[in-house]
Nucleic acid binder design. Structure first.
Lengths: 216, 216
DNA sequence: ATACAAGATGTTCCATGTAAGTTCTGCGTT
DNA sequence: AACGCAGAACTTACATGGAACATCTTGTAT
């Protein structure tokens, strides 16, 4: 068999299904999909250059995660969240993030603390670039459960982050909000570094409360 | 077209995909699927009398929910939870159930309270039948977020209940534990009926803590 | 003008075929 | 006996076709 020099095989580091999931997730985050529109599997499959099957599988996962709503025999659309549902999202974030911060404060290693400060400092550098700032913000909020190996908490917070996109997460990177976010993140990390679980939990709760207030 | 008297059409109140999901979920709860065994889509599809597609779709949902683990190109098996993961399950239940109880205590209507007591009393009648007792227990733990319309909390608790099956939920209905469970449930409802959020949250937390202790 | 039926259109839902990945088996070689 | 390797046997991952369902359009009768 002759090798085609310079032609690399189609990259498939993972299943098509998974990459459909990741790309659709990105599309929602980046507002390439918009509220109200009814989309079809076909349409997405054509865009992504694959068949309907992996797209459908991705859709099932996204629906389970609460990002889209599948309408039987019709298509799917971005989920709309009621005011009560938005409220619940913030409540759950406060609950899970304060829980994670509290636990980490009780058992943080030197490496954990180094990584947290490194991330906070990186985010401080990015304060002028809202898009990069937001990406780092997501990283920060997921890092704490990740360090603890709290898979389930991490998972749930990941899907709550998706809900934030539906709510309008760009409000998180409003110029006037950014300095406060940085201060609040640092307060959480300081409490963790100080080994003070109650303070860490409190700082996390306050951060979410202020975020919720800013989004309105 | 001639009607086939007495022959009713195949019931399809819902999609095959969904009924595959529900039946597999039941199978896990009832221990028809066991830890360790590697199952194939084909096998399940044959058992359920449908093609592989809806089974596969159900599997994706179950995997997302943490009940099964899909092994690429090999099949799937029941998820095994480490000690740390079990611990996390109880922590999250405590968090979410105390949150729900706390909120309901602050805004319960007369009808809510009636329904809660009715359920508690029904469960008291069933104390001698472990299986029925367990079913009612699940109902109780999901009723509070349901009454509040906390969809996301309800969903997460539903999937945490699935995790309890993996852990071995039959321990919840041990003869010596049943009276305590009934007392603890009643304590939660009493606090809600009294309109005391802090007490309701506390009662819910304690109930989960005791359950966790009993499972070990 | 309006109501309504019939067809056209667009979509999912499910079944199935196929290629490719994984593991097992048995045989031949050392 | 131990090892390696070819190929059989199994599995998923993905593509695709068709039936069923929902909706829209159009034409017709009132």
């Amino acid at each position: 068999m002759s090798t085609l020099r310079g032609v690399s095989p189609v990259e498939r580091p993972t299943s098509l299904s998974r990459s459909a999931y990741l790309r659709m997730r990105q599309a929602i985050r980046d507002r390439a999909l918009v509220h109200g529109t009814l989309y079809s599997e076909n349409e997405i499959a054509a865009t992504l250059g694959m068949s309907r099957t992996p797209v459908r599988e991705a859709l099932i996962t996204l629906a389970r995660e609460g990002l889209v709503e599948i309408e039987s025999q019709r298509g799917f659309r971005l989920r709309e969240l009621s005011e009560a549902q938005r409220h619940e999202v913030f409540d759950l974030r406060a609950l899970l993030e304060s829980y994670s911060a509290e636990r980490l404060a009780g058992q943080a290693t030197a490496e954990h603390i180094t990584r947290l400060y490194a991330l906070v400092e990186r985010q401080e550098q990015l304060h002028a670039d809202p898009e990069a700032f937001l990406a780092t913000d997501e990283e920060f909020h997921l890092l704490i459960p990740l360090l603890l190996g709290l898979e389930r908490t991490h998972d749930t917070l990941t899907s709550l982050r998706g809900a934030m996109w539906l709510i309008g997460s760009q409000a998180l990177a409003l110029p006037q909000r950014i300095p406060a976010v940085l201060t609040e993140h640092r307060a959480i990390v300081d409490a963790i570094a100080a080994g003070d679980p109650a303070a860490a939990a409190q700082a996390a709760r306050e951060h979410i409360a202020r975020t919720a207030a800013a989004v309105r």
